[in-house]
């Protein structure tokens, strides 16, 4: 892994640009995808952007019987191979942080894939609360 996705909650204003960027960059058939990132409020005007932590010993990977979740060694992201996914929902239920999601519109399981090495959320974050930096 050469890069790391860094979140600095102090800088987050809860503007939800990241959500928009994520939904648009994962659009399919002219429909936006479900965002994989959520800036959630924990106190008045205080936010934490919640997204996949790409755990080392990830519960989602362990829970998948079809080897559909695999780590991309370059970007560091755990990527979901939709061709191998049978929507058993094991990963959605197993992720302790609730970051494997089900997209009702496209009827598929989704999770953060760090946009194959160029995360749109970090790209568009106006306050640089989200960064994708070289190690």
């Amino acid at each position: 892994m050469k890069y790391r996705f860094v979140i600095d909650p102090v800088l987050c204003t809860g503007c939800r640009t990241c959500e928009l960027a994520c939904a648009f960059s994962h659009a399919k058939n002219l429909k936006q995808g479900r965002s994989r990132i959520y800036p959630l409020s924990h106190a008045q005007d205080k936010y934490v952007p919640i997204t996949c932590l790409q755990c080392d010993d990830a519960a989602c990977v362990k829970s998948c019987f079809f080897n559909a979740l695999r780590r991309n060694e370059i970007t560091g992201a755990i990527e979901l191979d939709l061709n191998r996914c049978v929507k058993c929902m094991a990963c959605v239920a197993a992720c302790p942080f609730g970051c494997a999601l089900f997209d009702d519109i496209h009827n598929e399981v989704v999770k953060c894939d760090l946009c194959k090495g160029d995360p749109a959320c970090a790209h568009f974050c106006p306050t640089k609360a989200l960064k994708y930096t070289k190690l």
């Binding site: 992720c95 609730g98 970051c99």
Partner: peptide, 14 residues
């Protein structure tokens, strides 16, 4: 559920 897990995570991160 996954929604509540994210809320819980937000609280502890906060």
């Amino acid at each position: 559920c996954d929604d509540c897990k994210r809320t819980e995570l937000t609280k502890s991160m906060g």
